[in-house]
């Protein structure tokens, strides 16, 4: 794919991914066929900041995990009062990373 297009994608979507994944994403996108561009553009990405806000207010119900698509863990968190409150507090700090990794996983379906 066109380098300009790829850089544009990286610029506008960089915040959705972990910094150390960016180089890999760029490399794969450059090798990718042009007709997948539409799919990549339409891939639903979750915003880490939104996830953080949800985690702070509704983390004890596991809503943050539901939001990023970790339904199974969300149910686990909901059933245990936010993982005995410990998991809730861990997720206040870890949910942004989890969101970015989940986004990368979603993008990987198109990359490979």
């Amino acid at each position: 794919m066109d380098a300009q297009k790829v850089d544009m994608f990286i610029m506008s979507n960089g915040k959705f991914f972990e910094p150390h994944h960016i180089a890999q994403i760029r490399e794969r996108l450059l090798l990718m066929d042009d007709n997948k561009w539409g799919m990549i553009q339409a891939a639903p990405m979750k915003d880490p900041q939104t996830a953080l806000i949800i985690s702070i207010f509704l983390g004890a119900y596991g809503i943050d995990r539901f939001y990023i698509g970790d339904t199974g863990l969300g149910v686990g968190k909901l059933l245990t009062c936010g993982g005995f409150a410990i998991w809730t507090i861990i997720d206040w700090f870890g949910i942004q990373k989890a969101t970015r990794e989940k986004n990368f996983e979603k993008l990987q379906q198109f990359l490979y």
Binding site: Y61, L78, C81, G82, F84, A85, T88
Partner: peptide
């Protein structure tokens, strides 16, 4: 009691009592 919500707001959460 470990429930964060119940300790903070005194309102039981959906899974209190489990």
């Amino acid at each position: 009691e470990v429930c964060l919500i119940k300790n903070a707001t005194n309102i039981p959460c959906p899974s209190c009592g489990t």
